[in-house]
Design a protein around this nucleic acid. Structure first.
Length: 856
RNA sequence: GCCGGAGUGGCGGAAUUGGUAGACGCAAGGGACUUAAAAUCCCUCGGGUCUCUGACCUGUACGAGUUCGAGUCUCGUCUCCGGCACCA
């Protein structure tokens, strides 16, 4: 053993040892209790960042801890390898996306290994490999067979300059995130997954997600957005057409003064004569900030009042929600109100607050006048007025009664609605999974037969960055014979959204030696059913809705295909906070790196630099820390330890260079105490002969085992677990042994410290474990168990309060009776003085802790 | 606007079922060792008052309340952060 803590040598030594001994290989023994520990796999962008370090450090502690607790642990890692950055790199640097991606994977894999992460690399997946994306295609075909994958025209965000569809997230202030061109709404044929088929189950399932953070569950519920309402048919005056609308407020139906159609609604094409104006409204579809309407020249009949109401087309009415048409009640809906003001439409009050109802019911003229005075819509529920037979009812009752009336008179039906929309998966890009569909002039849409899977991405393509998907230029890919009739046909050139890849990778990890979903159908004893669900999933909050919702959807689909038994993929979810750092901003040069700031001034212009907020590390804010540099300076153990110690996992973490040094000091201290007791074996002490200092250290050791175990088990609060270990190390450090027995106890304390520190700082603990002449890997040891008797305090500090204020602390033997505690407190000199001449009204005793004396 | 979450020293953060507020770490100040520095070790460290070896007052965003006792529970207010934002 060396006197100096040479982290680099030690860490490489043990990483080699773990790899050679295949220590992290998943146990094939399925009779053992399993634990599936999963961290969100990274996109191979080039290098890992501190967010990855934190995410994977958290997961690694859990995996290593659970192994020591005797679980059969699955802890895999892989690569979310399809995506746009690879294609951009291809355009910019003339390198094939595959080459770029695999080189990044190689580099990042080395970085992860250098972190000492305990992955079973035999189950590694890269979603861009044909072996993986073949199953995207296979799964797509199964959904297609069930009608859960379908094609339809829909409005999409379209960048005319990049010639591609953009996701909503890629549209910033109505402009393309890449080229700043104005994004337009274009109607395009797209493939969709019918996630709405599972809307109700996805919503119901939320209540079963007990191991998820509440806010993530709430976000999912809001995203699904269920509402209850009524669909009503309005006949079009002078026509056989009927206009069907959806409303959640049937109680306001007597207040309708106009109707609105979505621009894409079939009736809008039929009714509007001025097609040019219609195009203007269409172009502004979904642009909620400026409302654009157009009178169709037609009227609908309110089936409850027989009033004639004008029908408009409006850009803010969504074709995808409800029926694509609405009834408008300007008095009771703010948006309708603003639209009515803009187009000079009447406003009719039909709901009044409860307290006004008596007056208003008798004075409909007054309420008519008040409508003209309205400054904004009254959106609350209340009491109905001017509503025929329903006047006087409360909103809640009216909703029920009017709903009933509509159904009984065949005017419509009560129904449910969801905000959740079907998932558009088509992307006009190269670096993704080809959609396995063939278009034949004779047969139409023909799915690629299973035997022809995978449909492989062609190599003979150029990445120019201009003019749509590179797949359009590959003749070899495009031209194909129809699988049905053998005639000339062409392939679908769109690829799948990369969220498809990440929606089932956790199922792929369950299978070793090649992914084959088909062979697992209806196999209750399959490895998938052994390992699923994931026991602990760890990742960023940014995936709270999309990735996690899509994964739940896929799991339900896979269940219905017989591939997996359960319905939910992730039993427990830990959303770790962001890694942040302070920022610096110069009025002239914007964001600065810390070393561009000299004495609070910008080194370029000398102007005073403002200390910015602590923000998520990002290149643009110039507040990133490079993990490679840190590992070089302090080693992986220090980086892991600090990122776990600085904050509880779910909270944001502020990176502190000084804090890292603190973690490094601690590991050196651990190194020092082991060196001090070099060769000291942890024997079995004879309790009754222990010196006071030894029994105190032994007690602290057992108390620490309890604290650390509890902190890990309860919410993975590693920061307090590490704090407890620091306390124990401080005690060992100041321990001054006099006898062999004392030294034995020190040995016990050290042994347990190393065992508990091992999941956090795996390399140094392996090294020190070996140095204390212990055999095998420290990770083959069981987690220590605490002894309640040994952890028990002999003496306690009895807190004495007078009227709830702390007045004295008395050292008393543990296990003192309540009455003895009370008497001891009353006899205390200081207390006696305070009670002098006062009457004791009451004495409250908290067992083994506190006495509160209440005086008048 | 709606829905979540959070406000504790100079800083990151601790505080079982309501029971000693500030564990652990960072920074800061003082001291030891050293020719010196680094490293290491020891002491102090929420604010205030005093008759300053000790004691008292005050303090967990703000204001009330419940209680013998509130960082923790209840009601109200303010601020910050995050998500969804014209979903009919």
């Amino acid at each position: 053993m060396k006197e100096r803590y040479d982290f680099n040598e030690i860490e490489l030594k043990w990483q080699k040892y773990w790899a050679e001994r295949k220590l992290h290989k998943t146990d094939a023994d399925t009779s053992k209790e399993k634990f599936y520990c999963l961290e969100m796999f990274p996109y191979p962008s080039g290098k890992i960042h501190m967010g990855h370090v934190r995410n994977y450090a958290i997961g690694d502690v859990i995996a290593r801890y659970k192994r020591m607790r005797g679980f059969n642990v699955l802890h895999p890692m892989g690569w979310d390898a399809f995506g746009l950055p690879a294609e951009n790199a291809a355009i910019k640097h003339d390198v094939h996306p595959a080459k770029w991606t695999y080189e990044n994977i190689d580099y990042m894999k080395k970085q992860l290994d250098r972190m000492g992460l305990s992955y079973d690399w035999e189950r590694e997946v890269a979603t861009c490999s044909p072996e993986y994306y073949k199953w995207n295609q296979w799964f797509f075909l199964r959904l297609y067979e069930k009608g859960l994958a379908y094609k339809r025209a829909s409005f999409v965000n379209w960048c005319p300059s990049c010639v591609t569809v953009l996701a909503n997230e890629q549209v910033i202030d109505g402009k393309c995130w890449r080229c700043d061109s104005t994004v337009i709404q274009k109607e395009l044929e797209q493939w969709f997954f019918r996630i709405t088929h599972y809307a109700e189950e996805l919503l119901q399932g939320c209540d079963e997600l007990k191991g998820w953070p509440e806010r993530v569950v709430t976000m999912q519920k809001n995203w699904i957005g269920k509402s209850e309402g009524v669909e009503v048919d309005f006949p079009i005056d002078g026509s056989d057409e009927k206009l069907r609308i959806y409303t959640t407020r049937p109680d306001t139906i007597f207040g309708i003064t106009y109707m609105c159609l979505a621009p894409g609604h079939p009736l809008s094409e039929k009714l509007v004569k001025d097609k040019d104006r219609l195009e203007v409204v269409k172009a502004k579809y979904g642009k909620m900030e400026d409302k654009e309407g157009l009178f169709t020249g037609h009227y609908a009949i309110n089936p409850l009042t027989n009033e004639k109401i004008p029908v408009y087309v409006a850009n803010f009415v969504l074709m995808e929600y409800g029926t694509g048409a609405i009834m408008s009640v300007p008095a009771h809906d703010q948006r309708d109100f603003e639209f009515a003001k803009k187009y000079g439409l009447p406003i009719k009050v039909v709901i009044v607050p409860k307290e006004q109802s008596v007056v208003s019911l008798q004075d409909p003229v007054g309420s008519q006048q008040s409508a003209e005075l309205l400054k904004e819509a009254f959106e609350d529920e209340g009491v109905l007025i001017n509503s025929g037979q329903f006047s006087g009812l409360k909103s809640a009752d009216a909703k029920r009664e009017i709903g009933k009336y509509i159904e009984e008179n065949s005017l419509g039906k009560r129904t449910l609605n969801y905000k959740l929309r079907d998932w558009g998966i088509s992307r006009q890009r190269y670096w993704g999974t080809p959609i396995p569909i063939i278009y034949c002039d004779t047969c139409g849409i023909v799915p690629v037969p299973d035997k022809d899977l995978p449909v492989i991405l062609p190599e003979d393509v150029k990445f120019t960055g201009k003019g749509g998907s590179p797949l359009l230029e590959s003749e070899a890919f495009l031209k194909v014979n129809c699988p049905k009739c053998g005639g000339n046909a062409r392939r679908e050139t769109d690829t799948m959204d990369t969220f498809v890849d990440s929606s089932w990778y956790f199922i792929a990890y369950c299978l070793k030696g090649g992914i084959d979903l088909k062979s697992q159908i209806s196999n209750l004893k399959s490895p998938i059913n052994y390992w699923m669900p994931v026991d602990q999933y760890i990742g960023g909050i940014e995936h709270a809705v999309l990735h996690l919702l899509y994964s739940r959807f896929f799991t339900m689909c896979m269940r219905d295909l017989g591939i997996v038994n359960g319905s939910e993929p992730f039993k427990n979810l830990l959303t770790q906070g962001m890694v942040c750092k302070e920022t610096w901003k110069c009025p002239e040069h914007d964001w600065l790196f810390p070393d561009e700031v000299k004495n609070g001034k910008c080194m370029h212009c000398g102007k005073n630099v403002e200390k910015g907020r602590v923000e998520k590390m990002s290149k643009s804010k110039k507040n990133v820390i490079d993990p490679d540099a840190l590992i070089k300076k302090y080693g992986a153990d220090t980086i892991r330890l600090f990122s776990l110690f600085a904050a509880p996992p779910e909270r944001d973490l502020e990176w502190s260079d000084k804090g890292v040094e603190g973690a490094y000091r601690f590991l050196n201290k651990v190194w020092g105490i082991v060196y001090k007791y070099k060769g000291q074996r942890a024997g079995i002490p004879i309790a009754y002969s222990l010196s006071p200092i030894a029994s105190s250290l032994l007690r602290k050791t057992h108390q620490t085992i309890k604290r650390v175990t509890d902190d890990i088990e309860k919410d993975y609060h590693f920061n307090t677990a590490i704090a407890a270990l620091m306390e124990l190390v401080n005690d060992i450090s100041s321990f001054a042994p006099e006898t062999d027995e004392d030294r034995t106890v020190a040995g016990i304390a050290i042994k347990n410290t190393l065992l508990m520190l091992a999941p956090f700082a795996p390399h140094i603990t392996e090294e020190l474990w070996e140095a204390t002449n212990e055999k095998n890997s420290i990770f083959e040891q069981p987690w220590p168990v605490w002894d309640a008797e040994l952890a028990k305090e002999e003496e306690i500090e009895l807190v004495v309060q007078v009227n709830g204020k702390l007045r004295a602390k008395i050292l008393v033997p543990a296990g003192l009776s309540d009455d003895d505690a009370k008497q001891t407190a009353l006899k205390e000199q200081r207390i006696k003085e305070m009670l002098d001449g006062k009457q004791v009204k009451k004495v409250v005793v908290v067992k083994g802790k506190l006495v509160n004396i209440v005086i008048g």
